[in-house]
Amino acid sequence: MTLPPLAPGTRSYYLKLRDRASYEFALASAAVVVEANGGRVRRARLALGGVGTRPWRSREAERVLEGHPVDEHIFKQAAEAALHGAKPLHDNAFKVQLSKLCIARALHNVTTSA
C-alpha cells in the first residue's frame, strides 16, 4: 500500500522512548502528524504506543491542539488531555509521566524540524 503525500504544511514525527537494556520495546511512543499554518495548528493527529495493550489515537489531544498557536504550553496541555484518566498499574505508573513528556517532545520536534 502506498500512502498519498502529506498536504503542504503537514509534517509527521515518531518518537520512541525505550530502556537501554531493551532496544526493541518502547516504554512510551508518540506518533504525530501536524498541519500548521501561520503559527497555528490547523489539523493534528496523535497516537500513543507502549503504554497500553495496543496503540491508540488520542482525539482529546487532537482537539486541544487544533486551532491553537504552536507553542510548548499547548503541547503540554495536549499531553495532559491524552493521559487524562489514565489508570496505571503499580509497576508501570511511571509511564504516565513518561508518555506526557514523549508527546510534548514529539510535538515540539514535528513543529520545529525543517
Results as ranks from 00 to 15, higher is better:
Leu27Thr: 07
Thr112Ala: 06
Gly85Cys: 03
Pro4Phe: 02
Pro4Asp: 11
Arg63Thr: 02
Lys76Gln: 14
Lys16Gly: 01
Leu6Met: 10
Asn109Phe: 11
Ser29Gln: 05
Thr112Pro: 06
Arg40Gly: 06
Gly39Arg: 06
Arg42Phe: 01
Ala30His: 03
Leu46Ser: 00
Leu101Tyr: 13
Asn37Trp: 11
Ala44Asp: 00
Lys87Gln: 15
Arg20Pro: 10
Ala81Leu: 01
Ala78Met: 04
Leu15Thr: 02
Leu6Trp: 09
Ala86Tyr: 10
Ala36Cys: 07
Ala47Ser: 13
Gly52Ile: 03
Ala7Asn: 09
Ala21Glu: 09
Gly50Leu: 08
Ala79Gln: 01
Ala78Tyr: 02
Gln97Trp: 11
Arg20His: 10
Pro55Ser: 09
Arg40Ala: 13
Arg20Val: 14
Ala79Arg: 00
Arg18Asn: 07
Ser29Met: 04
Arg40Met: 14
Ala106Ser: 03
Arg18Lys: 13
Leu83Arg: 04
Arg18Ala: 10
Gly49Ala: 07
Ser58Tyr: 05
Lys87Ser: 12
Pro69Val: 07
Glu35Thr: 15
Thr53Pro: 11
Val110Tyr: 07
Leu15Trp: 04
Pro4Tyr: 03
Arg59His: 08
Pro69Ala: 09
Val70Gly: 05
Arg18Pro: 01
Ser29Lys: 03
Ala26Ser: 09
Val41Gln: 04
Ala78Thr: 04
Leu48Ala: 05
Leu17Gln: 11
Ala79Asn: 01
Asn109Pro: 03
Ala28Lys: 02
Ala93Ser: 11
Trp56Ile: 00
Ala61Lys: 00
Leu3Pro: 02
His73Phe: 12
His68Ala: 15
His108Tyr: 15
Arg54Asn: 05
Gly9Gln: 14
Glu62Trp: 00
Thr2Phe: 10
Gly39Val: 07
Leu27Pro: 02
Ala31Trp: 08
Ala44Met: 02
Glu62Tyr: 00
Ile103Cys: 03
Arg57Thr: 07
Ala31Tyr: 12
Met1Tyr: 11
Leu48Met: 07
Gly52Ala: 15
Trp56Met: 08
Val110Lys: 06
Pro88Lys: 06
Thr112Asn: 08
Arg105Glu: 15
Gly49Lys: 06
Trp56Gly: 02
Val96Phe: 08
Gln77Cys: 08
Pro88Val: 05
Ala31Cys: 08
Glu62Gly: 00
Leu27Gln: 13
Ser22Glu: 14
Ala86Ile: 01
Leu27His: 03
Ala114Ser: 13
Pro8Cys: 01
Ala81Gly: 01
Gly52Met: 09
Ala30Gln: 05
His90Gln: 12
Leu15Arg: 07
Phe25Arg: 15
Tyr14Met: 09
Asp71Leu: 04
Asn109Leu: 15
Pro55Trp: 04
Asn92Tyr: 09
Ala81Glu: 00
Leu107Ala: 06
Ala30Leu: 04
Ser22Arg: 15
Leu89Asn: 12
Thr2Met: 13
Val32Gly: 01
Val96Met: 06
